[in-house]
Each structure stands twice: as structure tokens, then as C-alpha cells.
Design a protein around this nucleic acid. Structure first.
Length: 469
DNA sequence: TACCCTTTGAAGGTC
DNA sequence: GACCTTCAAAGGGTA
């Protein structure tokens, strides 16, 4: 949980505490104790209270709806009406390109503060997407993979009000959030990996996301007047296809395509804290570093993420948590596993191939077999993570192939502290275990990645194994 | 055209 | 409970 850097303890300090963002109750208490100002706390608590209420309310509402047998088309018309009323305000206040949006009055009890939506905003999406399109009403009334009552789980007025609680972030609590998130003051950024600071904003380039969002606001031909594709619902192709996201009642000219190829919408995973951060900061990094390759950008973002203060990270965790809650409310039957296989087979194939390679390093189990367990390392005997990888015998320690800033998260030009402010970090979303993400091992260059893959049979697992060397 | 790369976090499955 | 796998975003790179 966020912990303000207090006297004596800078961000490198050892006075870290384990804070779990998963336990909301604990989290709230921790927040009270350490993290935010009193005002922040009050607002946050209020927000969370609203959440609790809204959760129960939403459930009750859904039950009520079941009794009402209210057609979702009717509900959808409500949404559209609401959207029409809100569009103006949304456009005026929302920062384009960011998944969060500031909500107009109907959703925000207290408009005076910068309210922030926690719902992701995909490219080309109307800001209202954050609220309305979490409903399936825009799609098949009863997608096969959803329960029959999903049509009742669409966002409706009561729920929208409830949701507003999610978005009601206290002004103070968001004080350091970037303007694009609707937060009021500038965050303190480390020096970029390019070696300079750059204020947000006005200098924001024509990044990929911002202009695209603007385009959606322009509502080009064929776009829904409200421009509401759902951020979490994607066409099976994986590409945002507006045809799939707009109400068929509103877009009759698009119907032929729908009828021709009724696609089953894919409900995307809610974004986690880091993903939200990435969406927010990507444009800035691109502007600063004139990088375009996402892999490199993401490396920088990863380092910056670790360089964030706890409060800054906490905001993203909180937003992500709320987004998950909202997602859960709207798609109670959705499972992350629903999307498994949607991205084809990727590394799995490679990993299988790699594991089939007799020359590749293996864990104790694979290397020595069950009948030579005495040769296993201790963790392997306990079914823990094999430590042989870490002992240098089977593969060389991954090192940066060059001294580039990207390769080295410790690079001074990046302004990133050698370690996360609180490392060694306890296990928590804010303070991942060093074994997982500490920058002691520099981010993986290609060389590193290869070395690691060979050692671990798993490209993914690599980041968990090698980073603690 | 489809997948890779790269990051962190969450979820679900396995052992 | 630890570990592993997959997916979420993004867009240039690659086969």
C-alpha cells in the first residue's frame, strides 16, 4: 500500500511494509494509517463505501431487473439518451486518449473535483465507453458465453450512479496524477530514459493514442453518434471493429455487415495497474525518447513503474482494482480463461519445443528425474522454484548486451533509483518480490532473453527467475 | 498477415 | 501455497 516517504526514510528506505492491495479491507486501513492525507483518506473511504453500497445495490438492482423483465433495448435507449446528454461535457473535460474519463454530472455527485473513471478506454472509443459499453446491450442480447441474465447486467441508471462511486477519486488523492487522468497536479517524473524531463501535455506529441482517440471523437462516417465501443469488448479479430460496438438500432447502415458476420464479442480482461500506467505514459515516453518500438517503450515504462512512489503506484492499483470490480459487476460470469487461446498459440509452442530439446537446461526434476531426487536442489524437492538456474552452472547470468539505457534500469539517465524505493520489497502489488521484478538484473535485452529462455523452458517465467540474480 | 517483442499484474490452473 | 501460463496494451519489427 502506498506509504509516503517519511522523514528518515527515503524511497530506498527499509521501512517498507507489506501492503496487499488485494485485501480491500486491509488496504483501506493501511491507507488510513500511512498513505494519504486525511482528506484523501476521507474521500477514499467515502468512495469505497460507495463501492460497497454500489455492489450490493447493483446486485439488488439486477435482481429487481430480473423481476421487472425489462427489455434491455429499452435500457439501452436510456443509455443512449444519457450519452447524448453527456457528450458535450465529456468532450470538454475528458483527456482524450486516456482510459479514464471525467464524468459529467449524472455520474458524479460532486463535480467540483476532478473525477476519474477507472474504465479503460480503448483507442477510438468514445469516452462514454467507460460507462455504458460495459453493458452487453450493445451486442448480442445474450451472448452464448454469458449467462442468460447478462442482459440484465447492463449498465443502467442505478448502476451508473453506483459506478460513479468508483470514479470518485478525491482531488487530493489524485493530486499527482497526470492531467490526462484528470488529476490536478503534475506528477514528479524521473528523468526520462532519454535524459531529460518533459512536462506533460502541451508538449504531448501526436502520439498514437491521442490522435486516434480524437478521431473517434470526430465520429467519422459510420460511427455511432455516441461513439461507444466497449473498452472491454473486442471483436474476435482482436482489432477494434466499430461495427461490433455500436448499437444496431443506431447504425442501420452497418447492419449488413453485422448480419453477414455476427461476431461474438470478446470481453477483454480489465487492465491492471501497470497497464493503466502504460496507457497513460506511453505517449510521454514516445515523445521524450522518440521511440516507437513498443518493446523498448515498455521496458522504459517498466523501469519507471518501479521508480514511481508508492502513492503514485497506489493510485493505479486503486484504479485497476475498481476497474476489476466494475468488470466483475458487469460480467459476473466472465473468466479470464474465456480469452485463453484468443491470441493463438504463442510461446507455448516455443516452450514445448524448447522443453523437447534435450540440449536445453532443465529444472532438477527434468534434469535428474524422479529417481535422482537426492540431486535436486532443495526448492525443487519442496516443489518450489528451482534455484539451480540462479547458481550459474547451467547458464550464464543474463547481462545486458550493451550498456544502453534501455538495457539498464539503473541507468542514471533514466533517473530511476537502483532499486525500487522500498526494496527489498515485501510481496505486494506495490512491492513485488525482488525475485520477480527487481532491477538488479537489468531488463532483458535480446541476449538476455535468449539466455533465459534456454534456461527456464519458459520465456515468461524468465522474468521471475533471473531478475533476482 | 500473423506473430514477436517487452513490460507488470491478475487470474486460473497445476502440483 | 508456490509456481506456471495466459492475457491485457501498444506498435514497430520480422518471417
Amino acid at each position: 500500500m502506498p506509504q509516503l516517504s517519511s522523514g528518515g526514510g527515503d524511497d530506498q528506505g527499509a521501512n517498507d511494509e507489506m501492503i496487499s492491495f488485494k485485501d480491500e479491507g486491509e488496504q483501506d486501513e493501511k491507507i488510513q494509517e500511512n498513505a494519504f492525507t486525511e482528506r484523501d483518506l476521507a474521500d477514499l473511504k467515502s468512495s469505497l463505501v460507495n463501492e460497497s453500497e454500489t455492489s450490493s445495490n447493483a446486485t439488488a438492482v439486477r435482481r429487481g431487473q430480473q423481476n421487472e423483465h425489462r427489455g434491455y433495448q429499452e435500457k439501452h435507449r436510456e443509455h443512449l439518451d444519457m450519452s447524448k446528454h453527456q457528450d458535450g461535457g465529456m468532450y470538454k473535460t475528458a483527456y482524450p486518449g486516456y482510459p479514464f474519463l471525467m464524468l459529467p454530472d449524472p455520474y458524479i455527485p460532486n463535480r467540483s473535483s476532478n473525477k476519474v473513471s477507472v474504465v479503460q478506454q480503448s483507442h477510438g472509443m468514445h469516452p462514454l465507453t467507460s460507462l455504458l459499453p460495459y453493458s452487453n446491450d450493445h451486442f448480442n442480447p445474450s451472448p452464448p458465453h454469458l449467462p442468460t441474465d447478462m442482459s440484465q447486467k447492463g449498465v443502467h441508471r442505478p448502476q451508473s450512479q453506483d459506478i460513479s462511486g468508483f470514479y470518485s477519486l478525491p482531488p487530493g488523492g489524485v493530486g499527482q496524477m497526470p492531467p490526462s487522468m484528470g488529476w490536478q497536479s503534475q506528477p514528479v517524473y524521473p528523468l526520462s530514459s532519454c535524459g531529460f524531463r518533459q512536462p506533460y501535455s502541451s508538449s504531448l506529441p501526436n502520439s498514437s493514442s491521442y490522435p486516434r482517440f480524437s478521431h473517434s471523437l470526430m465520429l467519422g462516417p459510420g460511427l455511432h453518434p455516441t461513439g461507444i465501443p466497449h473498452p472491454a469488448i473486442m471483436p474476435p479479430s482482436g482489432k477494434l471493429d466499430h461495427h461490433d460496438h455500436y448499437d444496431r438500432n443506431i447504425k442501420p447502415h452497418q447492419e449488413p455487415k453485422r448480419e453477414k458476420e455476427p461476431k461474438k464479442p470478446v470481453i477483454k480482461k480489465p487492465l491492471n495497474a501497470f497497464m493503466l500506467y502504460m496507457k497513460e505514459m506511453r505517449a510521454k515516453v514516445i515523445a521524450e525518447c522518440t521511440l516507437k518500438e513498443s518493446a523498448a517503450i515498455n521496458q522504459i515504462l517498466g523501469r519507471r513503474w518501479h521508480a514511481l512512489t508508492r502513492e503514485e503506484q497506489a493510485k493505479y492499483y486503486e484504479l485497476a482494482r475498481k476497474e476489476r470490480q466494475l468488470h466483475m459487476q458487469l460480467y459476473p460470469s466472465w473468466s479470464a480463461r474465456d480469452n485463453y487461446g484468443k491470441k493463438k498459440r504463442r510461446k507455448r509452442e516455443k516452450q514445448q519445443d524448447s522443453s523437447a530439446d534435450p540440449g536445453s537446461p532443465k529444472k532438477c526434476r527434468a534434469r535428474f528425474g524422479l529417481n535422482q531426487q537426492t540431486d535436486w536442489c532443495g526448492p525443487c524437492r519442496r516443489k518450489k522454484k528451482c534455484i539451480r538456474y540462479l547458481q550459474g552452472g547451467w547458464c550464464t547470468s543474463p547481462t545486458s548486451s550493451d550498456g544502453s539505457a534501455i538495457d539498464s534500469p539503473l541507468s542514471p539517465v533514466d533517473g530511476v533509483p537502483p532499486q525500487h524505493p522500498s526494496s527489498p520489497l515485501p510481496a505486494s502489488p506495490l512491492h513485488p518480490q525482488p525475485s520477480k521484478h527487481t532491477p538488479l538484473i537489468l531488463s532483458k535485452s535480446k541476449t538476455t532473453e535468449l539466455s533465459f529462455k534456454g534456461a527456464n523452458e519458459s520465456g515468461r517465467g524468465s522474468r521471475m527467475t533471473f531478475t533476482s540474480i
